[in-house]
Design a protein around this nucleic acid. Structure first.
Lengths: 221, 221
DNA sequence: CTTCGACAATCAAAATCCGCATTCGGGCAC
DNA sequence: GTGCCCGAATGCGGATTTTGATTGTCGAAG
């Protein structure tokens, strides 16, 4: 999952980035509204964290522009203190959730997870396909009830496929969502991880659509 | 389906081409208006993506010339930012859709699909002929409800015929729309694929019109 | 009705493409 | 330092595409 953070404070921004990366997300950080808007408009994110108090362009403006441009990834807005008006305005402009500063990183992560889950249309924190279950809350994966140890990248890849169950996902799309901006696009990394996941969870979990990408079968779809 | 991209930016152009090819299209790329106009006037495309800011000839001029020459493939115009005037001018000159830069590749693909669909007079994303159904969104084909596995080329061929249901389609036309510019025109590749599709979906799905080409019967039309 | 020629369909082999397994070096964490 | 994970490179194998040759079919003309 790939996240965009738009945050100007020189300490908080990088700190957030580090925390989220530690939690297994691919993170891009923009330090002003101009840059933030551009990234959100150009790249493919699964969610964004947006500070409302920004230099150059105001956070609300950024959000408003994204929505006008039909960018509909979920946005979590950071408001200074309990500024009630900001909160209302943010929700009006199309924010999906808000969090008042200062906040606990744990809460931020929990809310982020909920947002991404909701955006994918899943009610529960558990993603299921066949015998495989992935709990986004604990980060655990089980195969027919037995716990399976996945590495960070394996987990990310599987999680993205589960979030888009039934859809054919191209290699490009996977790379765009699992890694952040700068990544060498032509290598067989994705294939390697698919192979490793198949080795751990069984070959039939991921279907190859030759020439197009990979697909996770949806039993009831 | 064959697409023409007219885009001068040295990174965006090839990148788009690669993405669309990954999505199963045959793509030609022109890097200036002169070349773009020539290709669009000479070859047969199912759609074109046209950047308005071009060297040599302006994008609008290219579009205008095509329309004067009665080239009526759908054109998706790329406008810089939300330049309102460009948008209006583009639609005036005969563009079928527009997209403001920067955009997300997924959205571009979705719109392109819609354009081609609309141009063929289809409202839904599902193409139907007899017992055969093809969903352009997911890329799935079913025969009487049962899923059928088609290879990339088989799919392209079938999809083109379905888009032109009822019409007699010549071999040349098929080759022109399934492959891009450089392709050896005299071979019996098309016949081979027709045979294979018939084997998978039943012989009566595609009718041969001797001396002219192939035709997909339209039961209700 | 028969024959001939042109066109279409089929088959098998060759060439190509694409994905997969494996290996390996570097880096990071413990 | 040691072990594990990541990502790049390589070669293999199978699927797919293409080619070329052969067989089959249709339609017109005699």
């Amino acid at each position: 999952m790939r996240i965009l953070i738009v945050e100007d404070e020189p300490t908080l921004g990088p700190q957030l980035k580090a925390t989220l990366e530690g939690a297994g997300y691919a993170v891009d950080l923009a330090t002003d509204g101009e840059d933030g808007h551009f990234l959100g408009a150009t790249e493919n994110y699964d969610a964004a964290i947006l500070d409302l108090g920004l230099p150059e362009i105001d956070g609300l403006t950024v959000l408003d522009r994204w929505r006008r441009e039909k960018r509909n990834f979920p946005v979590l807005v950071l408001t200074a203190r309990d500024s009630w008006s900001d909160k209302v305005a943010g929700l009006d402009a199309g924010a999906d959730d808000y969090l008042a500063k200062p906040f606990q990183t744990e809460e931020l992560i929990a809310r982020l997870r909920a947002l991404i889950r909701r955006a994918a249309g899943n009610a529960s924190s558990e993603l299921i396909a066949g015998d495989v279950r992935l709990d986004t809350r604990s980060g655990r994966v089980t195969l027919a009830g037995e716990p399976v140890k996945l590495t960070a990248q394996e987990y990310k890849l599987l999680s993205y496929l589960l979030h888009h169950k039934g859809k054919v996902v191209s290699r490009t799309e996977l790379i765009e969502h699992i890694y952040d901006q700068d990544f060498d696009r032509d290598s067989n990394t994705i294939e390697v991880f698919v192979t490793r996941i198949r080795k751990k969870l069984g070959a039939d979990i991921i279907t190859t659509i030759r020439g197009l990408g990979y697909q996770l079968d949806d039993p009831q779809g």
